[in-house]
Nucleic acid binder design. Structure first.
Lengths: 154, 154
DNA sequence: GATGAAATAACCTCCTG
DNA sequence: CAGGAGGTTATTTCATC
């Protein structure tokens, strides 16, 4: 369903959505009108989830990243519900996955500084019981991709 | 430097950058022109890093997420350089951090399906020596935030 | 210094050839 | 696919507070 041009278009837009259609058209060797049509099709088909502004971590006051790996003994529906709610309420937790293996959950937490992790940790354990939480502080971001590989898209 | 309106504007745009200025203006009780000016100021001041299209993981063919936690014995400049290069080259690795603590690195990997993790793993260990790699498969995304908390911004 | 209203400019989209 | 008209949206100007 998608050809190389479509993938290229998606890749360009996921890196910079402010690109004028005319410029995208240039880069994929297409006329502006044809390119505009393709972009519309791609959006209608749901390839583009949404368009967002990526804020600057430094400027926005949360330059620090901590990953929290969580083990829990509780797996009741009630507990899970409370946990979900807590995750959703705490803004510093920007990403959360339920895992397989020796840890049950991973949280990505953004903070003004490392010491602030304690505040978030307390806010979390006040609401739910956790068996074990290991915090890993990010010292350096090697790749901060909002970009997905487009090679598998069809 | 920022007031409540500015934070609100940033929050709206980081959730949906397609919002017409007029609508953002409405939500913060401002005229379109005043709002447009504020957005410009915010961009000039560097609060907005960029604007991007977020692609649909399912549609784009990489619905599966795996977190790889890595320990390494090597810390020479050469090794680090090779590691960086590998990370940067492998598209399935969408995020990478250098950590403190019992693990040295964390990678977020996106894949067409779990079995494909092996392909990425082999591609990585072919290029660099790793002491230990633990893979944690995401069974469920509880929060997939591209959104930062704006409360700390000033 | 920041606002709102109106004028201007830029852009996208649709239509025609 | 190229070119241009028409409509929509954003930006700039200007007067005002």
């Amino acid at each position: 369903m998608l050809d190389e041009r479509d993938r290229r278009i998606l890749d360009l837009l996921q890196k910079d959505a402010t690109l004028p259609v005319a410029e995208v058209a240039d880069q994929v060797a297409l006329s502006a009108s044809a390119c505009s049509r393709r972009i519309q099709k791609l959006e209608e088909a749901g390839y583009v989830e949404r368009r967002i502004a990526v804020l600057d971590r430094e400027r926005i006051g949360v330059p620090t990243t901590v990953f929290a790996l969580i083990k829990t003994a509780h797996h009741s529906d009630d507990w899970i519900e409370s946990f979900r709610k807590a995750i959703s309420d705490i803004g510093e937790i920007v990403e959360a996955h339920r895992l397989t293996g020796s840890y049950d959950y991973i949280l990505k937490v953004v903070l003004p500084r490392v010491e602030h992790y304690d505040v978030v940790y307390r806010r979390l354990v006040k609401r739910i019981e956790l068996f074990d939480v290991s915090a890993f502080i990010s010292m350096e971001i090697l790749k901060s991709g909002h970009a997905l590989p487009v090679d598998y898209a069809e």
